[in-house]
């Protein structure tokens, strides 16, 4: 299909990259730190939440998806929804066993 590829240049400054990197390092330190604290049932949820935030930064900024065409966002959304569904269905086993 001869789709016109509309290439737009979005320049992300080095400063932003460094800032995001520092945020990622900070979140990694947080994950490691709270693994020593007994959070009970929510420990898994907290770890996953932090990981999700980190992934969002990487996907949007480092992988440039924030500035890409809609179709790429749809693709990623489908993959994420599939992953979420797999988590939910596995939970039906783990939490009701």
């Amino acid at each position: 299909m001869a789709n016109e590829h509309s290439e737009k240049n979005h320049s992300v400054g080095y400063g932003t990259y460094v800032l995001i990197w520092l945020v990622l390092v900070g979140l990694t330190v947080t994950t490691v730190s709270i693994s020593g604290i007994n959070l009970g049932n929510i420990a898994l949820a907290v770890a996953l939440l932090i990981a999700a935030v980190k992934s969002a930064f990487v996907i949007n900024i480092f992988m440039h998806i924030k500035f890409e065409e809609k179709i790429f966002k749809v693709f990623i959304a489908i993959a994420l929804m599939t992953l979420l569904s797999v988590f939910v269905l596995t939970a039906f086993d783990v939490f009701f066993r």
Partner: peptide, 18 residues
Amino acid sequence: GYFVWAHHMFTTGISDTS
């Protein structure tokens, strides 16, 4: 097809809900 995988595991001791 993504959401039927545990039918390979019916006799393994997974939860009844599952």
